[in-house]
Simulated scan of single mutants.
Amino acid sequence: MTLKWWAVVVAVVCLTSAVTANVVIVAVDGEQVPLLVNLFALTTAGTAVVLAVLAELHDRLNDRVTALTEFLVARLNEIEAHTGDRNAGFVEGYLLTHGPDAAVVPLDRRGRGAAER
């Protein structure tokens, strides 16, 4: 059972037990349940409801992020496949037009002017 459903069960049990206790005590003794007991039951049920809502929102956000990730992966694979095919011939053609041995030209040293050459 997920956190969301545990929170819903806790909230239902808490509210049911509080209402039942209030009805039974009023019917039997004619008195009221102490305020602290009612506040504890309401606080527990409210916290459980908030936790259930947050768990549901987390599940929805996780589903959206997963869907977005899958879409981006598919789109990037499509782009990579398309550009890989287009550039493959260009690179091969470029490499074939240039010889395997490229000339290496050394750079001038820094600090020396054109007059010293």
Rank of each mutant, 00 (worst) to 15 (best):
1 M>Y: 06
1 M>C: 06
2 T>G: 02
2 T>S: 10
2 T>I: 02
3 L>E: 13
6 W>P: 00
7 A>S: 15
7 A>Q: 03
8 V>N: 01
8 V>A: 01
9 V>M: 07
9 V>K: 02
11 A>Q: 03
11 A>K: 05
12 V>E: 02
12 V>K: 02
13 V>L: 15
17 S>M: 13
17 S>C: 10
18 A>T: 08
18 A>L: 12
20 T>S: 15
20 T>D: 07
22 N>H: 06
24 V>Q: 05
25 I>K: 04
25 I>L: 08
27 A>F: 12
27 A>C: 08
28 V>A: 09
29 D>R: 10
30 G>R: 04
34 P>K: 08
36 L>V: 14
36 L>N: 10
37 V>C: 04
37 V>N: 03
38 N>V: 12
39 L>D: 14
40 F>G: 11
40 F>R: 10
42 L>D: 12
45 A>E: 02
45 A>Q: 03
46 G>H: 10
46 G>N: 11
47 T>I: 09
47 T>Y: 07
48 A>V: 05
49 V>E: 01
54 L>Y: 06
55 A>W: 03
57 L>V: 14
58 H>V: 13
59 D>P: 00
60 R>V: 12
60 R>E: 13
62 N>F: 04
62 N>D: 13
62 N>V: 07
63 D>S: 13
63 D>R: 15
64 R>G: 12
65 V>T: 11
65 V>G: 00
66 T>Q: 07
66 T>D: 11
70 E>W: 07
71 F>Y: 15
72 L>T: 02
72 L>F: 07
72 L>D: 03
75 R>L: 15
75 R>A: 15
77 N>E: 12
77 N>F: 04
78 E>T: 06
79 I>M: 08
79 I>R: 04
79 I>V: 14
81 A>W: 00
82 H>Y: 04
83 T>W: 09
85 D>Y: 01
85 D>E: 15
87 N>R: 06
88 A>T: 05
89 G>Y: 05
91 V>F: 09
93 G>V: 01
94 Y>H: 03
95 L>M: 10
96 L>I: 06
96 L>K: 14
98 H>F: 04
99 G>T: 09
100 P>R: 10
100 P>K: 12
100 P>A: 14
100 P>I: 11
101 D>V: 15
102 A>I: 02
105 V>E: 04
105 V>L: 11
105 V>R: 12
106 P>N: 05
107 L>Y: 08
109 R>M: 03
110 R>F: 13
111 G>D: 06
112 R>G: 01
113 G>A: 05
113 G>C: 05
117 R>L: 03
